[in-house]
């Protein structure tokens, strides 16, 4: 078995994960906050930065809004989990 023939698109996975989170939190009272908080609570800084760097392409509108909120520095205001 060779590992070389195996290609991985980590960014595509992160996009999929963010969209999954967004779709599952749409019923929250404040979905954008809920999505941002979920990602903040469970993703590493590097994973978040990879998605920031990737930009909005392929992302659900709610996920885009959540990432914008995260990038705007929800982090600086301390941990955002309600």
């Amino acid at each position: 078995m060779s590992a070389e023939d195996h290609t991985v698109d980590t960014i595509a996975k992160l996009v999929r994960m963010a969209n999954q989170i967004a779709r599952n939190l749409t019923h929250d009272k404040d979905p954008v906050a809920a999505i941002a908080e979920h990602i903040h609570a469970f993703w590493t800084v590097r994973m978040q930065e990879q998605l920031f760097a990737h930009g909005p392409e392929g992302l659900d509108p709610l996920a885009i809004a959540a990432l914008e909120r995260l990038a705007l520095g929800a982090r600086d205001q301390g941990h955002a989990v309600r």
């Binding site: 469970f42 590493t44 800084v45 994973m47 941990h79």
Partner: peptide
């Protein structure tokens, strides 16, 4: 204070 990686990550 930041979470680490899960196995798949």
């Amino acid at each position: 204070p930041e979470p680490g990686m899960r196995i798949p990550n």
